[in-house]
Computed example of a mutant assay.
Amino acid sequence: MTFELTATFRQASGCEVSQMSDGVVVYQGERERVHYLNPTASLIFDLCGEAQSLEAIAEYLKDAFSLPEPPRAEVTQCIAQLLTEGLISPC
């Protein structure tokens, strides 16, 4: 999947989020599914809740983890997986 860097996403409605020491657990009641997100995926999921663009999310991770370049490919891959699982949707 490819996305424009300006693409924004939002969390799907009906998700129950529980914080864990190593990420978050997201429960989708309608689908009766449980998802375990690692710390990085949970951060991306949280930023989607703020309707941040893909570029803004990649820049945030670059700064948060002191990376030399924004991890655009990794963010794109994570967002694609979150979309596939129905945890986020495009704005």
Results as ranks from 00 to 15, higher is better:
31 R>N: 13
76 T>M: 04
15 C>Y: 01
30 E>N: 08
38 N>T: 01
28 Q>H: 08
29 G>E: 08
89 S>P: 00
39 P>I: 00
5 L>R: 15
26 V>E: 02
77 Q>M: 09
47 L>V: 09
65 F>C: 13
33 R>C: 06
86 G>P: 03
52 Q>S: 15
45 F>N: 05
91 C>A: 15
2 T>A: 07
73 A>F: 05
36 Y>R: 14
78 C>K: 11
66 S>P: 07
77 Q>S: 13
62 K>C: 14
52 Q>D: 03
61 L>W: 12
47 L>C: 02
48 C>N: 02
28 Q>I: 02
28 Q>D: 13
44 I>Q: 02
49 G>S: 05
66 S>H: 12
46 D>I: 05
47 L>E: 07
54 L>W: 04
87 L>I: 05
65 F>A: 14
73 A>S: 06
17 V>I: 11
21 S>C: 09
51 A>V: 13
77 Q>V: 03
10 R>G: 12
74 E>N: 11
37 L>D: 00
87 L>N: 02
20 M>P: 03
16 E>S: 12
89 S>Y: 13
76 T>C: 02
31 R>S: 14
44 I>T: 01
77 Q>W: 06
23 G>F: 06
38 N>R: 05
19 Q>F: 13
76 T>N: 11
7 A>E: 13
18 S>Q: 15
24 V>Q: 10
40 T>V: 13
74 E>W: 07
39 P>S: 03
81 Q>D: 08
25 V>P: 02
70 P>V: 04
90 P>L: 05
89 S>T: 13
70 P>H: 00
57 I>K: 07
82 L>F: 05
61 L>H: 11
75 V>I: 04
78 C>F: 06
50 E>Y: 15
4 E>T: 11
41 A>N: 14
9 F>D: 03
12 A>E: 08
9 F>N: 03
11 Q>V: 03
9 F>V: 01
60 Y>S: 08
65 F>V: 09
89 S>F: 10
53 S>R: 01
40 T>E: 14
69 E>A: 08
15 C>H: 12
54 L>D: 09
87 L>V: 00
33 R>S: 08
41 A>W: 11
49 G>I: 01
72 R>K: 15
74 E>L: 01
3 F>H: 14
87 L>C: 04
80 A>N: 10
12 A>Q: 09
22 D>K: 07
23 G>Y: 00
73 A>R: 08
75 V>F: 07
39 P>L: 01
74 E>H: 07
83 L>S: 01
3 F>E: 04
86 G>N: 05
87 L>M: 09
54 L>P: 14
20 M>C: 11
81 Q>K: 07
8 T>C: 10
58 A>H: 10
23 G>C: 01
17 V>N: 01
41 A>T: 12
12 A>K: 05
63 D>Y: 08
25 V>E: 15
7 A>H: 10
68 P>M: 00
7 A>F: 04
64 A>Y: 15
37 L>P: 09
67 L>A: 08
29 G>F: 03
56 A>N: 14
41 A>H: 11
20 M>F: 09
14 G>F: 02
35 H>Y: 14
61 L>D: 12
63 D>P: 06
57 I>D: 02
70 P>G: 00
25 V>D: 13
42 S>F: 00
74 E>G: 03
69 E>I: 02
51 A>P: 04
62 K>H: 06
91 C>H: 12
12 A>M: 00
89 S>H: 14
75 V>G: 07
1 M>Q: 10
